[in-house]
């Protein structure tokens, strides 16, 4: 139990350790959410196609029926809101993920130097901060766009 509490406290509470800890927390949460969505997505798509029998039994009556039922089930503003949040997460996770991969290969890090005080860690270089904020900006744009798609917020 205490390990679970420690996990929640350290994974989900990004305060006071700088931008990089925010990136870590958001990357983790979005990663888990996207993975869970992916499972649901495959499951619901599987429902729609109705399994392998669909392909052997034209004219796909059964598939059509399942497709309509699933569509009805998913036609719910809650799922739409979930997709809006998901749009933010996918954009953030993938662009910030590219930054992490580049950093893991040592490409966008500062070179080691003699530390001068007050010291600013070179691990979070300027270019990395820029990519982080670009990922947040594009994710926000995706969020606004999908808000418009689902809830018509931008249309008069």
């Amino acid at each position: 139990m205490s390990t679970l509490l420690t996990a929640l406290r350290t994974w989900l509470v990004p305060f006071r350790y700088g931008l990089e800890r925010w990136s870590y927390t958001m990357q983790r949460i979005s990663g888990v959410v996207i993975a869970l969505y992916f499972v649901m997505h495959v499951a619901s798509t599987g429902q729609v196609v109705g399994g392998p029998s669909v392909w052997t039994l034209p004219p796909y009556e059964y598939a059509k029926q399942v497709w309509l039922e699933t569509k009805e089930f998913l036609a719910n503003p809650l799922f739409d809101a979930g997709l809006v949040v998901l749009a933010f997460m996918i954009f953030f996770h993938s662009i910030n993920g590219v930054r992490l991969v580049l950093a893991h290969f040592g490409l966008i890090l500062k070179k080691p130097t003699r530390p001068e005080y007050p010291y600013h860690p070179g691990s979070m270089s300027r270019i990395q901060r820029v990519i982080f904020w670009v990922s947040v900006a594009l994710a926000t744009a995706a969020l606004v766009y999908s808000l418009d798609v689902f809830f018509k917020v931008l249309q008069p």
């Binding site: 700088g18 990089e20 800890r21 870590y24 992490l100 950093a103 893991h104 040592g106 860690p121 691990s123």
Partner: peptide
């Protein structure tokens, strides 16, 4: 996972997160 909190708190400017990424490379 490159949370880099180590580098934020190091009192000697060691920047362990930088060393780890260079090592990982």
């Amino acid at each position: 996972h490159f949370a880099a909190s180590c580098s934020q708190v190091c009192p000697k400017g060691v920047d362990p997160a930088l060393a780890i990424q260079l090592l990982r490379k």
